[in-house]
Amino acid sequence: MATITTISESVGANRIVPTVAIPYPVGDPALESKEEPLREELVERAIKALKTDVEKPTIFKKG
């Protein structure tokens, strides 16, 4: 899970979930109470990526 996905690709990461921002990759203080659903979705997407077969660096976008 990384904000700068090009770097992740360049070092050979094969399952990449783009995150929110560098100081809070899996969160967003600006959302206050609505931060929870965002965080849940991001981690579930990461888990889904672990369940998916890939041949090369693949970015798992929302939806």
């Binding site: 100081p23 809070y24 990759p25 899996v26 969160g27 203080p29 965080r39 991001l42 981690v43 579930e44």
Partner: peptide, 19 residues
């Protein structure tokens, strides 16, 4: 390398153990 305020407030924003 980054502004620590948000991670110190809620470290799981960087490493989501709670999720």
């Amino acid at each position: 390398g980054y502004d620590p305020v948000y991670a110190n407030e809620f470290p799981d924003r960087v490493a989501p153990l709670d999720q």
